[in-house]
């Protein structure tokens, strides 16, 4: 019960600071512009995919870190009240992740609806994109909380957040590429698949690829990836890994919040 009450107050606070509105408008304008210039729903989705995979983790982790630092007073105030730390943590998380997710879903979904971009097979692809976006929001908000809880210095926390983002967006794939070249003599399909489970952005990207780039993926190695992620087991593993990426940082964050001194 208290979780919802706390979330409601945090929501009001978040809405008043307007960044979440800007965030939603960013997606709204971008999607709308892509429709006006680009045309088909499919093409808009493809362009959005890059933005979703880069911007959502960035905004979620940077704003999430700032948000938790900014909620310090609120947290301290509520901890003197008969409120469980767990409820407070959940409330704080909801207060961030919910408006971000809603802003993203509406900002992206409304233009699709308005431009009639849901025709054909794009409806399910859009759902997948929205689902991936929301998943990444949750994951990177959790990571942000974990980071903000583990360092008191705000500038440092922000630096770590950006570092984590750079790692998952760029460095990780550089290492994968390096591994592919260094270990060229070995069959790398399965190790590479396993590696992709270790990066939530890659996981989201591959799930979206299967929806958008099916022709390319049907060739050569692509068929291996497709067979894996296309099978019930593979999808289960992918969704499980995505869920683990939400749950594990969240649980670690909760534990850290539970033990923290204010």
């Amino acid at each position: 019960m208290n979780t919802l009450k706390i979330a409601r107050y945090q929501l009001r606070d978040v809405m008043r600071s307007r960044w979440v509105l800007l965030y939603g408008i960013f997606f709204l304008l971008m999607t709308d512009a892509l429709f006006r210039f680009g045309g088909s729903g499919e093409r808009v989705l493809l362009s959005l995919m890059n933005v979703v995979l880069i911007a959502i983790p960035l905004v979620a982790i940077v704003l999430g870190t700032m948000y938790l630092y900014g909620s310090r007073e609120f947290t301290e105030l509520l901890l003197t009240q008969p409120v469980r730390r767990r409820s407070l943590f959940l409330g704080l998380f909801t207060g961030l992740a919910l408006p971000m997710s809603v802003a993203f879903v509406l900002g992206t979904g409304l233009p699709f609806w308005a431009h009639g971009g849901l025709a054909g097979g794009t409806g399910s692809s859009l759902l997948l994109l929205l689902g991936t976006g929301v998943g990444l929001t949750l994951i990177f908000a959790s990571l942000a909380f974990l980071i903000a809880l583990s360092t008191e210095d705000r500038i440092r926390g922000l630096g770590i957040s950006l570092g984590v983002w750079v790692f998952f967006t760029v460095v990780f794939n550089g290492l994968v590429m390096l591994a592919i070249y260094m270990l060229a003599d070995y069959p790398m399909e399965k190790p590479v698949l396993a590696l992709s489970l270790l990066n939530p952005i890659d996981l989201g990207r591959i799930l979206l690829l299967l929806s958008f780039d099916i022709s390319a993926l049907m060739g050569f190695t692509g068929a291996v990836f497709r067979r894996f992620f296309g099978s019930g087991l593979g999808q289960g593993v992918a969704i499980g890994a995505m869920a683990a990426w939400v749950v594990i940082p969240f649980a670690l964050g909760l534990r850290s919040f539970h033990r923290k001194n204010f």
Partner: peptide
């Protein structure tokens, strides 16, 4: 509890 430094959510 009346804290030493009164810190509250700034937007509320």
């Amino acid at each position: 509890y009346m804290p030493q430094i009164a810190r509250y959510p700034e937007n509320l």
